[in-house]
């Protein structure tokens, strides 16, 4: 799967969970800068991504993500 496609699926998941139709997100967006991002939505998004891509993250990975691109890296490495 191409990075752009992964990004677009991530955006879909995030917008459903944060209940926002139009969010501006690109690879260099900082996770903490996303409107409505908090610890609970973070967990919902992680679980949403795990289900969508049928992967499982390691617990140590979560804390290393700073940017959306880190998230995409993590997904790509498990494809």
């Amino acid at each position: 799967m191409k990075r752009a496609e992964i990004l677009s699926q991530i955006i879909d998941i995030i917008s459903v969970i944060l209940d926002e139709n139009e969010i501006e997100i690109n690879e260099s967006t900082r996770l903490l800068d996303i409107d409505g991002w908090d610890s609970l939505s973070m967990i919902q998004i992680v679980v949403g991504i795990e289900k969508q891509f049928k992967i499982k993250f390691k617990s140590l990975e979560y804390n290393t993500w700073l940017l959306i691109s880190d998230l995409i890296d993590a997904i790509e490495s498990k494809q």
Binding site: S39, I43, Q44, V46, V47, K56, F57, K58, S59, Y62, N63
Partner: peptide, 15 residues
């Protein structure tokens, strides 16, 4: 039970 979620968040139930 979701162990990684628990490890990160102390949540003792999965979503």
């Amino acid at each position: 039970w979701d162990a990684p979620i628990y490890a990160n968040t102390e949540m003792v139930l999965s979503l």
